[in-house]
Structures are given as C-alpha cells and as structure tokens.
C-alpha cells in the first residue's frame, strides 16, 4: 500500500524543466539550440560608436585622406572602394587592426557589449580569442570570399562560438549566410559518405535552405561554427566592415586554436583556481 501511495504521488509531480534558467534565458537557449545562431542587440552602443570612429580615423590616416579629401565617416565605411582598391585592402585592414590593438581595453569592450548572451551560450567561465579579426568586403570584390564551410572541419573546437559584429548595416549578399542547425546536421551527415566534395557544388545544392542574416549596425550575430556558413560576392552597393571573435567555455575541450596561443581566460572563477591549487599541493 505504502509503495502504491508513493508511486501515485511521484506520478503527479510535474516534469522539471532542465536547467534553472530565467524565462528570457530559456527562450534564448531554445532558439540557439534550434537555429545554432542568434542575432543580438549590443549593449553599450556608445563603445561601438567609439570603435567605429577609431576605425574611420585609422583608415583615413593610412590612406592619407586629409583636409578636403577626407570623406565623412559614413562615406568612408559605405564606399571604401572609392578610396582603396582590392590590391591595397589587406594593408588597410592590417593598419586598422594594428591601430585598434594598441587599445588595451578593446577586447574587454567587445566582450562587455555582448556579455549576457555570450554567458547564456557558453557559460560564465570563458576563454576569448586574443585578437579580433577584421574583414572588409568591397562591392563586387571576389578576393575575400569564404566558401561554404564549418570551422570544425579545419580542426577548431566544436565548443567555440563566434561573435560576428558589423560596423555597417548588413543584409542580403553584403551579409553572411548560415545553414540553420537542423539542416547543417543533416547535410554534414550526408557529406560523411562523400569523397572529395566540392564546396561550390554543395553550396548550389543547399542554397534554398540558407539564411542570409540581416544584421543592422548596433547588433551582432552569435553562432556556433559547427554550422555551415560563408559569404558570397557582395552584390550590394556598399562595403561590408565586420569583426569576428571566437569565444568558448574555459574548461571545454580545445581544438587547433589552443589556450594561451589563440585564446586567453577572461573570467576564471575562484573555485577553479582553488581546486587546481589544492590538487597541486597534494601532489607536491
């Protein structure tokens, strides 16, 4: 009898939802698990505005755009092709990156702009890529394309996510595309049986399933690079300027990009330090 009574009570208990997440956190996680990406509004937009202005100043300085030759910030970013050709694009990119890296608070700034959704995605003990990557894609330029790929195929850890952060409004071919998670998993499973697949043929096959991300300035994309993604020739009339930065849970497995060499811990928690020190002391 007692056993029956207990069993009956247990059966009436509601199934607990896994994880102690708030409503908005839960909704975000469900969306990310479904799609593999999220478009997020950035916090502290004034910091992004500062970075954008610094990019403009560094770019103008590198290209010698002074006095009456100096365009407005909007013209410089939207119509970079008026001031730099494809052949000088990499030098411009490096000049801007090197200039930005002299700011010791730069990476902290990017992290703070998206901290909450980053923590919702990878946890709150985080490793962040040491340097940012900058991509400039002029209209109709075919020299800086990223064919359809998943970064995991290059040996990167599947636990990494990417913060893709534009300095301009990105839409249609001026943006990046992703194959949402369910389709990515299906297509990757299909590919495992194929030999010597061709990225372009694969792109054509899955083209109808791709999502071109619409990301206005002031927003960013967080995505798992397990997704198939890439870009095409920018057929819009304006230039694309985007940053990308990788992040991951500090204690999750690393791939080709290792801790120290490519990533640095940015939020190591005391229990991790204390636990490690305890074990080290026991050993010595």
């Amino acid at each position: 009898m007692l056993t029956k009574t207990r069993a009956a009570k247990t059966a009436h208990r509601s199934q607990p939802r896994p994880g102690f997440f708030s409503e908005d956190e839960h909704a975000f996680i469900e969306g990310f698990l479904r799609d593999g990406y999220a478009i997020i509004p950035l916090e502290q937009k004034d910091r992004l505005d500062e970075v954008r202005r610094r990019v403009y100043e560094l770019g103008c300085e590198h290209l010698g755009l002074k006095g009456s030759k100096r365009p407005s910030l909007e013209e410089f970013l939207d119509h970079t092709e008026r001031f730099a050709g494809v052949e000088s694009l990499n030098a411009l990119r490096l000049a801007v990156i090197n200039g930005l890296n002299s700011d010791a608070q730069l990476m902290r700034g990017f992290f703070d702009m998206a901290r909450r959704p980053i923590e919702w995605t990878v946890g709150n003990e985080i490793a962040m890529q040491r340097t940012i990557n900058l991509s400039i894609q002029l209209p109709n330029d075919d020299s800086s394309l990223l064919p359809l790929h998943s970064d995991v195929w290059d040996g990167n850890s599947p636990y990494e996510i990417v913060l893709w952060l534009p300095l301009v409004d990105c839409f249609k071919t001026k943006s990046m595309y992703v194959l949402p998670r369910a389709q990515s998993r299906k297509r990757i499973a299909e590919m495992r049986g194929l030999k010597g697949f061709d990225a372009e043929k694969l792109f054509q096959r899955i083209k109808p399933e791709l999502v071109w991300l619409e990301v206005p300035y002031g927003s960013a994309v967080l995505f798992t690079h397990c997704l198939m993604h890439g870009n095409r020739i920018n057929e819009e009339k304006t230039t694309r300027w985007t940053f990308n930065i990788r992040l991951k849970g500090l204690l999750t497995p690393y791939g080709a990009k290792e801790l120290g060499e490519s990533f640095l811990p940015v939020t190591t928690r005391p229990a991790t330090r204390i636990g490690f020190e305890y074990l080290q002391e026991e050993k010595s």
Partner: peptide
C-alpha cells in the same frame, strides 16, 4: 597569475580528481 590560469586549465583538461583525494 595568467600563466598559471592557463596551466591550470591545461592540466584540468588532462585529469580527473584522483580517487584517493
């Protein structure tokens, strides 16, 4: 401190808590 944080994570990736502890 930063070097030791990195060494800690690398070591943690290699081991589990020893049973005798």
């Amino acid at each position: 401190a930063l070097v030791e944080d990195i060494m800690a994570v690398k070591a943690l990736a290699r081991e589990r808590v020893p049973a005798e502890l």
